[in-house]
Design a protein around this nucleic acid. Structure first.
Lengths: 112, 112
DNA sequence: TTTATTTGGCGTAAAAATACGTCAAATAGT
DNA sequence: ACTATTTGACGTATTTTTACGCCAAATAAA
C-alpha cells in the first residue's frame, strides 16, 4: 500500500505553493496570457507562439491542466484548450492582477 | 566568454515567472508568512518553525534572498532576516493579496 | 483507400531543485 | 584560552523539471 505521504506543511500553504509553482515558468504564463486573449477558445497551436518544441509545450499544457488552470475538449483531430474558471477564479481570489484580464467568455459555457 | 544566454521569452514574463517560482514551495511561503508576523525582524531560527533540516531551510532562505523578497543583516553570530520591501512591493503591485499583510514595519528602516 | 495532420504517450538526457551531512569560521560565554 | 552556538560554504544523493525525439492512434483530406 502506498503510504499516504504525510504533509509536512499545512494544506493551504501546500495548495497555494502548487498554484504559484504552476505559474513559475515563462512558457506557462505565456500560454495563460494567450488563452486569455483568444476569448474564443483556441486549439493546441499554442505551439506556434511558444518558442519551444511541441512535446515540451504539451508538457507545460499538461501541468496547467493538472493545476486546474486550463481545460480541453477534442474536436476531430484537434484539441481546444481554454481557461478553466475553477482554477482561474482561485487566482483571482488571491488577487493576482496580472491575470485579472483572464476571463474566457466562451469558456465554461459549452463551446469548449 | 560565457555566452549571454538569449532569452526565449519576453523579459516581463521571465521576471514574473521567477517571482512565482520563488513562491512555489510551501517552506518559502511559510518563511515569508512568518517574517511578516514578526514585525520585529527575527533571526534565522526560522529553522524552528520550518519542518526541514537547517541546511535545507538555509537554501530556501537563499532563494528568497535571490528573488529579492527578503534580506539579512548580521549581529554577532546571529543573522537577522526580514522582508525586503523591494521585492514585496512587486508582489503587492501584482495584487497578491495573500501577502498583502506582509509589511515588516521595522524593516527597511535601519533596524535590520 | 492512401496520405497528411494533429495529438497524446513513452522514453530519455540534461539540468535544476530539494534535502542533508559535514566542516570551518566567527563570535559569545565560561 | 577553551568551549559552545550560530552560520555560511561545500559536497552530494535523490527527485523533479525541462526539453526533445520518436511512435502510434485518430481523423481529415486526396
Amino acid at each position: 500500500m502506498p503510504q499516504a505521504k504525510t504533509n509536512l506543511f499545512e494544506d493551504d500553504l501546500q495548495e497555494l505553493s502548487q498554484l504559484f509553482k504552476a505559474l513559475g515558468h515563462p512558457a506557462r504564463l505565456q500560454i495563460l496570457k494567450f488563452l486569455s486573449k483568444q476569448n474564443t477558445c483556441f486549439s493546441g497551436d499554442i505551439n506556434d507562439i511558444v518558442p519551444l518544441g511541441r512535446t515540451t509545450v504539451n508538457q507545460h499544457i499538461a501541468e496547467l491542466k493538472k493545476a486546474g488552470l486550463i481545460k480541453s475538449s477534442t474536436q476531430g483531430t484537434k484539441t481546444n484548450y481554454c481557461l478553466n474558471n475553477d482554477g482561474i477564479s482561485k487566482l483571482n481570489q488571491l488577487g493576482i492582477s496580472f491575470l485579472s484580464e483572464i476571463q474566457c467568455s466562451s469558456c465554461n459555457t459549452n463551446e469548449c
